[in-house]
Amino acid sequence: MNMQISRLVLGRLGVAFVTLLIVSFVVFAATQMLPGDVVQILLGQAATPEAVAALREAMHLNDPAILRYGHWLIGLAQGELGNSYANDMPVADLIGGRLANTLMLAAVTAAVAVPLALFLGITTAMYRGSVYDRIITMGIVAVISVPEFMIATLAVLTFAVWLKWLPALSFANEVTSVTEMLRVFAMPVITLCCVISAQMIRMTRAAVIDALKMPYVEMALLKGASRRRMVLRHALPNAIGPIVNAVALSLSYLLGGVIIVETIFNYPGIAKLMVDAVSTRDLPLIQTCAMIFCLGYLLLITLADIIAILSNPKLRK
């Protein structure tokens, strides 16, 4: 059993690694296809053709793309991320602090959103069709159908401008105490919860309802098990696969998809870094950011896959 599981986990990790390689190629190709010339953008509008040519040469941009891909990949494997085109600082330095900020925001959001979503998803499934279920179901669609930037702006206007309870900007590095942290994170976390919870709630509800229809649950019902026991002991374990998948997908959004929240609350995270990098055509930075998003995403879904397999004995073959 243990052997089997470890072999399975290793297999999954191996597959994730292969995916990462595919992704690295796709990302590299995508950055090469971006419109606009790096050197032209670096030198600005006043660039002379000679200066452009000289800089192209200095940056090895005239080498064949496949060679540059090789160099980059080898560098990546050695932990050598290269220097930013835009300001010549090591990419690792630029990303370091911001990645920590992003992970912190993601962790706090996940800690709030996941339990909340699971609770709401399971209870709405238990009381399917009740007034409670209807209100929650409609409520979450209403919440996600409001654009994210509108929720964020509304929150800032209410809590920062009118009530003056919370700061309008979230500078992660000013956090010194727990209360300060609550104040700083409150609005971004609320906004993000509104965005990511909906999918988790809906999917949890759908999966639990599906599981409730299984014959063995019916059996449990006939045995006279309580509703709580029926859901938690009989239905839920069989719904874990789809639920962890939905959770993983929603959480993967917290790495690269929080650009609007980072912009409005001026939170120095990695999503904004990536957008900046795209507009300055800072290829090393774009590539590294994209690889980080992919890595995070792959870790999450690999984890979800493993949990799904472990939770369904029939899949453990």
Binding site: V18, V26, A30, T31, P35, I259, M274, V275, A290, L298
Partner: peptide, 24 residues
């Protein structure tokens, strides 16, 4: 396996980057 990996790779490319490349 192949389909899953391919689509995972697709999913992990940020949509803004993807959009820009498509337009280009």
């Amino acid at each position: 396996t192949g389909l899953s990996r391919l689509l995972d790779a697709l999913n992990s490319i940020p949509s803004k980057l993807f959009g820009l490349v498509m337009v280009a």
